[in-house]
């Protein structure tokens, strides 16, 4: 089967600093790929390049049949990439359900004119959007919070809402940037189940940046290890665990100190 995401020789430098170089990956449908590495290794940069928040200096990104080069972030989202952010970026002063509805924007196509005069298509699509939004909130157990302000939710719920919002764009690939950051072990365990369920129910591939090794080793089909902008190892969780290069990258500096 064709990969849903294919990245070849991706690289970027920020004012002389090579933040990422020669990054290659092919993600198959429904696969969960872990992206790990020390802080500053370039993990989030990969996400920013895929979504074209920063244009890459070199390399090629294909989402299905679409090349991303020269396309705005919102177009890439429509090609099937959705993401969450390391430092949660919710629409804080809007309600939970509006956060989800905003992502369903492109699922509707009524025009400005139809909106102003509230023609039938407006009603039909808004109703449908509301229904889907509640369904999505149900997946994350947030129906009761639908009309709360997103910014007033507890931290774990904010992370979950961000995932719900990302899923509302109907992605083929979901990019999760440290979804377990700041969660306690029981919340993390719950998140692990949620991620598994998302893969099954939404039929998406997931790329996951995470520092929580239990989570990464527990759900990833394979793992890429980044260090100083380069892939230093890749393989199944078991292979990664015993890879000396990875151990070196994570523990090496400490040993020499």
């Amino acid at each position: 089967m064709d990969p849903v995401l294919k990245i070849e020789h991706l690289g970027i430098n920020f004012g002389g600093l090579q933040a990422l170089d020669d990054f290659n990956i092919q993600v198959a449908n429904n696969e969960i790929v872990g992206l790990i590495g020390p802080n500053g290794a370039g993990k989030t940069t990969v996400f920013n390049l895929i979504t074209n928040v920063y244009p890459p200096s070199k390399g090629r990104i294909m989402i299905g049949q679409h090349e991303t080069e020269g396309h705005a972030t919102h177009e890439i989202t429509q090609y099937g990439i959705a993401r969450t952010f390391q430092n949660i970026r919710l629409f804080k002063d809007l309600t939970v359900i509006d956060n989800v509805k905003i992502s369903l924007h492109n699922g509707m196509n009524y025009s400005l004119f139809e909106a102003l005069f509230r023609l039938p298509r407006y009603w039909k699509q808004e109703k449908e959007t509301e229904r889907i939004s509640f369904e999505l909130l149900d997946v994350f157990g947030m129906r009761d919070n639908a009309y709360d302000m997103a910014g007033s939710l507890p931290y774990g719920a904010q992370r979950r809402l961000e995932i719900a919002r990302a899923l509302a764009t109907y992605p083929q690939v979901l990019l999760l940037d440290e979804p377990a950051a700041g969660m306690n072990p029981s919340e993390t365990a719950e998140l692990m189940e949620t991620i598994k369920r998302i893969r099954r129910d939404f039929n998406v591939a997931i790329i996951l940046i995470e520092h929580d090794m239990n989570l990464v080793m527990g759900i990833c089909d394979r793992i890429l290890v980044l260090n100083y902008g380069l892939i230093i190892a890749q393989g199944t969780p078991d292979e990664i665990k015993s890879n000396p290069v990875v151990i070196e990258a994570y523990l090496g500096q400490q040993r020499s100190e």
Partner: peptide, 16 residues
């Protein structure tokens, strides 16, 4: 409204 709240997240949600 989403642009007011967070422009980057808005783009990422598929909003031009």
């Amino acid at each position: 409204l989403s642009i007011r709240e967070d422009e980057i997240a808005s783009e990422a949600s598929g909003i031009s």
